[in-house]
């Protein structure tokens, strides 16, 4: 429960962007059920929106849109950009499914070992088979890096990587696959 009862001030800071992570999460949750807070947030979004017009526009790299298309379309091949690929409903983004398959392939040996363990469990449903292997993903991230790369990082950077990896693991364990996927994905693409 948020103790800050200056609803309008809280909404203003939320929209402005100055709240810390815990406060943002609390406001995100509370606005779903607190109509007064939700209305105050909407009003502040309208008040401050013109500021976005002042910021300089920046052209994103072309590959970004290809990435978006591959996430929202069923069969867009790499480099495909005419957007005519078949679009599938996004109740479950296909990009995530593909990523999970790739992750599963990368951890094949571990999966085989786990399969033996799973045989001792009650008959698992399809959802259980599709569940991410959080421990393996976390371990793979650290083991598959060039250890010399760590030497080049400052202590602060290494701590930052560690925190992000732990957040990814925690999100995965908590069942937040989309969040976990985004974090693991980002970690894998870090160049250090």
């Amino acid at each position: 429960m948020i103790e800050d009862e200056d609803i309008d001030g809280l909404a203003a800071e939320y929209v402005l962007g100055s709240l810390d992570p815990a406060e943002r999460r609390q406001v995100d949750a509370r606005r779903q059920t607190d109509a007064v807070l939700a209305a105050a947030i909407a009003a502040w979004e309208r008040r401050l929106a013109p500021l976005s017009d002042r910021g300089q526009d920046v052209t994103p790299p072309a590959h970004v849109f290809d990435g978006i298309l591959s996430r929202i379309s069923g069969s867009a091949p790499p480099g495909h950009s005419d957007g005519r690929a078949e679009v599938v409903p996004l109740r479950r983004p296909s990009g995530r499914r593909r990523w999970m398959l790739a992750a599963a392939a990368g951890a094949l040996a571990a999966c085989l070992a786990l399969a033996v363990v799973w045989l001792n469990y009650p008959q698992p449903g399809p959802q259980l088979h599709a569940k991410m292997n959080c421990s393996q993903l976390y371990k793979d991230f650290w083991v598959n890096r060039d250890t010399q790369a760590y030497v080049r990082l400052s202590a602060e950077q290494l701590a930052g990587v560690s925190r992000m990896a732990l957040r990814a693991y925690d999100a995965c364990e908590a069942g937040d696959e989309q969040d976990a996927k985004a974090l693991f994905d980002r970690l894998q693409r870090m160049n250090f």
């Binding site: 300089q56 994103p60 990435g67 978006i68």
Partner: peptide, 27 residues
């Protein structure tokens, strides 16, 4: 996209993260 990417880059300060976030935004 140029406006939204500008917003994201200014907040994140790191283009390599901004690309990923822009993708998530448009999805």
């Amino acid at each position: 996209s140029v406006k939204l990417y500008g917003i994201i880059v200014r907040i994140l300060g790191r283009p390599e993260l901004a690309d990923e976030v822009l993708q998530e935004v448009y999805v």
